[in-house]
Design a protein around this nucleic acid. Structure first.
Length: 280
RNA sequence: AGCCACCGGGAGUGGUUC
């Protein structure tokens, strides 16, 4: 049973639906009942590939076999609907959950919150947030990060930063992603002073910046035509053992192109290939 | 019963379809 599970979960995380199903069917034929985790992996994979109907069918089958779908299972469906940009249909999953006595938790709310935000349905997103608080679901770090990004994307850094501070006030510890989000926000409005200040604060607190964090800052400088400062950051990045990736190079190359420095752009393309990074 | 592990949500550039 354990081997079945790791096989299926393995195939699922590699996106090999066919293989996963094959093993799953063999398993069931052998009379071995799958566990909830195995089923959830399959449901998730179905949803990631847009087969929501099949996922719901599998969940019905689970229910019949007394493998009761939990909030993880439902979230796979919710996430699938959100990724298809139909977050409002995802909201309709909540009543289904309640009907089966599974209570939507912070992850379920956050998933839809992010989905609505990415469809630019800000009002609906904030309404959902209010509703979440009203029913007593406590936002966690990810929820706050989603909210911070909502305000960052439209340049409302006053609100974004307020939420960032609220995170710490609630006893949550910001991580690399939440710092990167707020830094990206300031970079987006060209406020490199605050971006840099937050970056320093992050270092001071021992929260490790990664390639995404650096790339946000590099992009900020490039868009202000400050290739000098951008390159300084690249050096800083390398000395902190963080390696530029395709996106980082893309940012730099685009920066030089904007300035008409096509020779530098080509040099970077070559450098990139030398490092074994290939544009896609 | 308690603890642990496994499955679900958050961050960056440009290109491309309509």
């Amino acid at each position: 049973a354990f081997n079945f599970k790791s096989l299926i979960c393995g195939f699922c995380s590699m996106g090999l639906l066919g293989k996963a199903l094959e093993v799953f069917n063999t398993m069931v034929e052998c009379g071995v009942l799958p566990g909830i985790v195995t089923c959830n992996s399959l449901v998730d994979l179905y949803c990631m590939e847009g087969h929501i109907q099949e996922a719901l069918q599998l969940m019905n089958e689970m229910q019949n076999q007394s493998i009761i779908p939990n909030s993880s299972t439902y979230n796979a469906v919710i996430n699938g609907l959100c990724k298809e940009k139909t977050s409002e249909r995802a909201l309709e999953i909540f009543p289904l959950m309640l009907k089966r006595n599974v209570f939507p938790g912070v992850v379920n709310y956050s998933t839809i919150l992010d989905g609505l935000a990415k469809e630019s349905k800000l009002k609906k997103a904030l309404k959902l947030y209010t509703r979440m608080l009203k029913v007593g679901v406590t936002p966690d770090l990810v929820t706050y990060t989603i909210l911070i990004n909502i305000f960052c994307r439209c340049g409302r850094m006053y609100e974004a930063y307020g939420l960032f501070q609220e995170t710490s006030m609630k006893g949550l510890v910001p991580d690399t992603v939440s710092y990167t989000s707020i830094i990206a926000g300031f970079c987006g409005i060209g406020d490199m002073k605050n971006a840099r200040a937050l970056f320093n604060e992050m270092l001071q607190r021992g929260i490790e910046p990664n390639v995404v964090t650096y790339t946000c800052l590099v992009d900020g400088f490039c868009k202000l035509n400050r290739m000098d400062l951008a390159n300084m950051l690249i050096d800083e990045m390398r000395s902190n053992k963080v390696t530029p990736d395709v996106v980082t190079y893309n940012v730099l190359i685009t920066g030089y192109q904007r300035l008409g420095k096509l020779d530098r752009a080509h040099e970077l393309l070559d450098e990139m290939k030398e490092e074994g990074i290939f544009p896609d």
